[in-house]
Amino acid sequence: MSRLNPLLQRLSQSKPFMRKSGYNLLIFASWIPALVFFNENVGQVAKISGASMYPYLNTSYNEGRSKDLCWVNKWSPGQNLQRGMLVSFWSPSHPEVLAIKRIIAVEGDVVYPRAPCPSPKAEIPAGHVWVEGDNRDGRRSLDSNYYGPIPINLVQGKVTNILWPWASSGPIRWWEFKGKTKVVEGRREDAPQWS
């Protein structure tokens, strides 16, 4: 304490400029929790990495290193999920990675999956969705064909807008999506339940 006292004295007597900037720094820090809350519960800008959503996102994947930026709406993420929506979710196989894929089927549907999936037919159980990347080459996308239907609780947000590049920026018209994967649409009430 005896060594700390001169330091405290010097700080309290320091020039108004130093005191002022220290105060401003404190005010800035006090807004960080608000920023974290906004990013986790309201919305966030997400950078798209990889080719799994090519050609819809990262359209210039083969031409350069630039990556698309998207707006993710994080308000009530698990509610009202529809076929065709783009969602961001924690990857089941990599817990610290937020993945962005397209919802192909919702609970109650039957999917006929592609290559790495061991079974020819998958029923989507209650509380789950089936997600896939847009890329025609299944090896470019780590999706439900590898890890099966994902729990809705993993979904963190819905991708609503493309922000960058300018050429493709605008709202995402997910309802216009026509998939290549064969899906037999069912009713949510008929989804396999967990006993």
């Binding site: 698990g78 509610q79 209650a126 509380g127 729990p151 609780n153």
Partner: peptide, 9 residues
């Protein structure tokens, strides 16, 4: 943890 089966639980 968040339930695997029921959203929101």
């Amino acid at each position: 943890f968040d339930s695997v089966v029921e959203p929101g639980q």
